[in-house]
Amino acid sequence: MKHTISVLLQNKPGVLSRVTGLFSGRGFNIDSLSVAETLEKDVSCLTLVTHGDEAIIEQITKQLHKLIDVIKVTDMAEHEHVEREMVMIRIKAEDETRAEVLRVIDIFRGKVVDVSPKSYVVEVTGSKSKVQAIIDILRPIGIQEIIRTGATAITRGKKS
């Protein structure tokens, strides 16, 4: 089963390789990974998507926790959370398709962030399935290149 795991870590040299080395060394999977700094300058947040049965996910969280530079490990499956991924797509947009592309982007609430005579670069944010959906729809029109960030996630505020 797919799990999104959020890892707070001390922002020290080599810390990312400690995490990725753990995954490759122990045969765990990484489907996607994104990392950036948090409000605290010396703390980074790494969001990774992985899959495996319950026992594997338990090992993954425990082994991550065992790394000395790791502050906190959260399996998002155990929390109400919002998960987003961003994709940027450079798509062929010539006379006959320019309008069609804009219509599709509008439906997906995407944005055009770069315009050239024969292409657009569009930006769409959403769940993994939404991102996949726009890629599938635009593909027949002529996608030149895509870049995806991988998922990132945050827990929701408390209800009460």
Binding site: A55, E58, Q59, K62, Q63, H65, K66
Partner: peptide, 8 residues
């Protein structure tokens, strides 16, 4: 003492 040893 190592939680990762348990149920590994």
């Amino acid at each position: 003492i190592d939680p990762s040893s348990i149920s590994k």
